[in-house]
């Protein structure tokens, strides 16, 4: 489902208030929502209830707010906040929910230069920064982006766990980004 269809669906829902429309929008993401709820709530029943609650929450929140630019990222924030709220359970739920969702909605998610295209770019800045990375992070990123190995293969090759690989790649990416941005200022 592309963003345009999502926007039309949201608009349709806003005018008609029909849950079928919202369902059409929500159902493709239900596995993801369930997964995130599982991760945070760590309980199958609670996570399933949360998936339902989030749907009802969406039904209200979408009417209150403007159409989010990117429904997926918005939904992710909503789901995460919902789970965190559930875990915290104190404080006024709605206030915090709104506050947080507005904060996140504004930022959006900016793509990392590495993820922007399939082709790896060898800009001097990137190469420079790669050298500065920690050995483990550098290797993981090289294998992942340059050699196109999947997490599992990288984990096998580096004799570590998949989880470690994942976090090495994410941390490496973050460090790279900071490094590249600094270089841009310098130039």
């Amino acid at each position: 489902m592309n963003q345009n269809t999502q926007h039309t669906l949201i608009r349709q829902y806003k005018t008609s208030k029909k849950l079928e429309v919202l369902g059409e929008l929500y159902q493709p993401y239900m596995p993801l929502v369930y997964g995130v709820c599982l991760k945070y709530l760590k309980n199958r029943d609670a996570a399933q209830d949360a998936v339902m609650d989030i749907f009802e929450k969406l039904a209200m929140e979408l009417l209150k707010h403007d159409t989010p630019d990117n429904f997926k990222t918005w939904l992710y924030v909503v789901v995460k906040n919902f789970c965190l709220m559930k875990l915290r359970k104190d404080g006024s739920e709605n206030r915090a929910f709104q506050k947080m969702s507005v904060e996140f909605m504004d930022n959006g998610f900016s793509l990392h230069p590495l993820d922007e295209s399939d082709e790896v770019d060898f800009s001097p800045a990137l190469v420079e920064c790669m050298k500065k990375l920690k050995e483990r992070q550098r290797k993981a990123i090289e294998l992942f982006y340059y050699k196109k190995l999947c997490y599992k293969e990288i984990a096998d090759q580096l004799k570590t766990e998949e989880k470690k690989v994942k976090s090495d790649i994410q941390n490496g990416k973050r460090n790279l980004k900071i490094c590249i941005e600094n270089q841009i200022i310098d130039e």
Binding site: P31, L38, K39, Y76, K80, H112, Y151, K166
Partner: peptide, 13 residues
């Protein structure tokens, strides 16, 4: 997964 934190979280779950 590495691109999309939503999917990443979901996969963890």
């Amino acid at each position: 997964i590495s691109k999309d934190p939503f999917l990443e979280d979901a996969m963890d779950g």
